[in-house]
Design a protein around this nucleic acid. Structure first.
Lengths: 156, 156
DNA sequence: ACACAAATGATAATCATTCGCAAATATCGA
DNA sequence: TCGATATTTGCGAATGATTATCATTTGTGT
């Protein structure tokens, strides 16, 4: 489970794997390195492509299996945006949600403590503990040119 | 597109279909009736099962095609919760989001104007118009017994 | 270095969903 | 009301993403 999450991050693949109770294999290290470097939200096929650059012997099946373990261990996150296949990103120190640009497919990350807090309150009021959530804003670029706030990240 | 949404709802299948610019077929009427009656979030297989009760000749392919048109016409909504296949529900007068009980799979609907408003604000601040969104709270029942607020709906 | 459990690669299987096409049907105008 | 025509349907095949199988390879603790 998530026991390793506190002090191990993807920056040290071997340490992260050990702390997650996973065996340290060449394939997992490569994938963690790929995920550590990446600023976007690659899908399995893209991860496979990038991992192959480091080690051409890694199979697509292993990519599927590895991302599943890494998600389970709390090292990375899985997203399934509408009409697309699953994408992955490393679990950041600070949680964020996503805007999906309906025209370009571009993904913009943002965070809002107020929304986070409201979600927890709502769950609590209905008798639940919030474990995790998914918030995706499907948007189009506003026509006027004044974008007032700079987002955390923009990626694909 | 969504031109029919304002005055046609699922309660009058034929009218709704005509206003959506769709041909009135027996299969579509049956499916709209099923969706009008239902208080839960059936998937395609379940819709097929229920539609067959009224007309045994309806095929699964038609159910897929029909829900796609109905979503496109703004008469129903599609949800894809984690680890499950797509589910559908009629588009209510008032929008709501969902809590998914991680232990039971039960779905609880709720609404929060404040969250809706915050979402629009965030999108706007980042230079976007919010078209639609997806908010799902994955939760577990709180252990203590006092559930303070009564949710809109509980269904599966 | 060894024994054994776990992970990998290649490929087959599965699942949800979509497609292709001939037959059936709704719509619209005469 | 009756066709002509474009849509829709049912069936089964095809697809795309993901998972399972299984023989082989590889970590890990001793």
């Amino acid at each position: 489970m998530n026991t390793a999450k506190a002090d191990a991050d993807i920056a040290n693949p071997e340490t992260a794997l050990r702390q997650a109770g996973l065996r340290v294999t060449a394939q997992r290290i490569v994938l963690l390195q790929v995920l550590a470097q990446t600023e976007d939200h690659p899908d399995v096929e893209e991860l496979h492509r990038r991992a192959r650059a480091a080690d051409p012997r890694i199979s697509i099946a292993t990519v599927y299996r590895t991302v599943a373990s890494l998600v389970h261990s709390g090292l990375i996150q899985r997203h399934v945006f509408e009409g697309a296949s699953a994408r992955y990103e490393r679990l950041d120190d600070r949680h964020h949600d996503h805007i999906v640009d309906l025209d370009t497919g571009q993904i913009v990350e943002f965070q809002s403590d107020r929304i986070e807090q409201l979600q927890a309150e709502i769950a609590a009021h209905l008798g639940y503990d919030l474990v995790h959530h998914r918030l995706e804003l499907y948007c189009r670029k506003r026509q006027d040119q004044s974008s007032t706030i700079i987002p955390i990240t923009i990626s694909t």
